[in-house]
């Protein structure tokens, strides 16, 4: 096994441990952890299978194997960014509803306080 393989495997495992730690401490929701675990899995897979990248590149007709890495990585980032945009939109919607309920409730509370004075 080549030195770079060992480094890659160890790094991937450490990354996986970190993700597991975050989930364990409740700092990362499982739905987001999912994508990180899968990405790490892919890294590990290619760390063990040294010729994997070249084989995959050949199958997909990519001339230079590193380009396959860039393409895959950029695509994964784009998908994840889209997912985050959806999440932010949902949060904004929930935030808006909360703020409105807050204003309406505050009005009720203030009206009650005035009546008691």
């Amino acid at each position: 096994m080549a030195r770079i393989q060992i480094i890659a495997i160890i790094t991937s495992f450490l990354f996986l441990l970190q993700v597991a730690y975050f989930i364990h401490r409740g700092r990362l929701r499982e739905e987001y952890a999912f994508i990180w675990i899968i990405s790490t899995g892919v890294l590990l897979f290619f760390s063990f299978w040294r010729d994997g990248l070249e084989t995959m590149a050949k199958i997909m007709g990519v001339y230079a194997p590193p380009n396959l890495v860039f393409m895959g990585a950029i695509f994964a980032v784009l998908v994840y960014l889209l997912h985050l945009s959806v999440t932010v939109s949902k949060l904004q919607q929930q935030n808006k509803t909360l703020a409105q309920e807050h204003a309406l409730l505050q009005r009720i509370v203030e009206a009650k306080e005035k009546r008691h004075e």
Binding site: N95, A99, Q100, A103, L104, R107
Partner: peptide, 17 residues
Amino acid sequence: VALNLPINLGIGGAVQT
């Protein structure tokens, strides 16, 4: 009737309130 929003929602969110 005064309704005070705790965060800025923009015109749509405000009138909806």
